[in-house]
């Protein structure tokens, strides 16, 4: 069975955002039947990488369920105001990454997720 295609796109195709700024992203699903989709979760979150165990902080979360009224595959826009911290960080043993994540729940308990990372920085380099 073919995996669904999850497309995520940031507004203006930017990859660097500033704290307190409004952050938009669009998401769309393809190569999947509407009847195969149970729910779609859309999140904006940070997670840590590096030597330590992974920590995660969810800034925005929305769960869209299949109610039969809307097509979960259609283009959907998420908009949220980014927090003032934590900023993206590329340290030696601690790294902080920000991403938009779309997780699809399919029939028979299958899951597919797609991340698109971005930088949350005080100054645009």
């Amino acid at each position: 069975m073919m995996e669904p295609l999850v497309s995520i796109r940031f507004s203006d195709n930017r990859r660097c955002f500033r704290p307190g700024e409004t952050f938009d992203f669009d998401c769309q699903l393809d190569a999947v039947e509407q009847s195969d989709l149970q729910a779609v979760e859309l999140s904006v979150l940070w997670y840590t990488e590096g030597k330590g165990d992974e920590d995660m902080g969810v800034h925005y979360f929305e769960r869209r369920k299949d109610t039969g009224e809307t097509d979960l595959r259609e283009l959907y826009r998420v908009s949220t105001k980014l927090p003032l911290s934590p900023l993206s960080y590329d340290g030696k043993i601690v790294k902080i990454r920000w991403c938009a994540r779309v997780r699809c729940f399919l029939r028979k308990g299958r899951e597919v997720h797609q991340d698109l990372c971005f930088q949350l920085q005080a100054s645009e380099e």
Binding site: T48, G50, G52, D53, E54, D55, G57, S85, P86, L87, Y89, G91, V94, I96
Partner: peptide, 12 residues
């Protein structure tokens, strides 16, 4: 400089 940071398993 990175700001101070504290989570369950990582910190600056």
């Amino acid at each position: 400089a990175m700001h101070s940071f504290l989570s369950s398993h990582n910190a600056v």
